[in-house]
Amino acid sequence: MSKVTLTIDGLQIPAKEGMTVLEAAQASGLYIPNLCNHPDLKPAGLCRVCVVKMDDWKIAISCKLPVKDGMVISTEDPEVQQIRKSTVELLVANHPMTCLTCEADGDCELQRVAHYVGITQENLNRYRRSVRSIPIDRSNPFFDFDHNKCILCGICVRTCDELQNINAIDYAQRGVDSIISTLANKPIAESRCESCGECVIRCPVAALAPKGAQEPMREVKSICSYCGVGCGVMLGVRGQKVVSVEGDRDNPVNKGSLCVKGRFGYRFINHPERLKTPLIKKNGTLEEASWDEALDLIAEKFSNSKGDKFAALASARITNEDNYLIQKFTRAVMGTNNIDHCARL
């Protein structure tokens, strides 16, 4: 890919052919306000907030505009400023003003662009305010869908289509009545949604928000324990408690994606009924034991069971390497080929 240079607001920026102006700006650490763009998805060009002026005459949308060598881009042209300001003001005039109790507070793209554009109460007062009052869809056990906060950026729809290929949701109705919807506006739990939550994490506002989410005090990098894929996770920890899970975007296995279990099934970690030590049955009842005790007992029983009376069933929840070790152990140590794996059943 050949390298090109473009100018954004007087700054020379290097870029590669095939990039969009927005991508080039972001790669150089420049912020061009935007709402409907997401690096994992094809650009939609619908929010119109990333508007720029090209070569001093043409209004263009930077998320869809391919870079060209020698291109001159302005993000502060008066016409650009006006379109951007009106667009953001319109969004805010139609958005609930419940920021302090909103899940997205502090991490809200709408707040960010509103702040960048400089929305004032005085300006906003000129507008006719109109906020939807659609009941919140709480049917999904893991997240809520609040259409009143939705800015119709379509990121969730594109995620469900482009990344997950599920298509549980789509745009429905049209114009000002447009809404992200399942078939006939049924609750999302009745759709083919698999609750992966990929849309939830990409929602720039809190139209889609996890239930009972808590801000973590620190993050711990880990590997998801549910299956052998080995997705990288960032566990959000508060005190000694895991309060959230996010996909690890740096992990080459999942690049940030997670399934419903990995993303939402973390509450077992701090569950009061979770087993924390091995249990050994003594006199008909299970009693807590130490790992040494348990492993000694297993070794003893295994030693007496070599040959074909032994069989091993390996699990998909452990890694390939661990599975390899199990079959090696079964064949070489236990002396039998009776080895199978749950994924074969």
Partner: peptide, 21 residues
């Protein structure tokens, strides 16, 4: 406003705002 497809913000909310005013 009724005929706007609704995909982009200026048309979807702009026509509505103009109409409301």
């Amino acid at each position: 406003e009724i005929e706007s497809c609704g995909q982009c913000v200026p048309c979807r909310l702009g026509t509505k705002q103009l109409l409301d005013i």
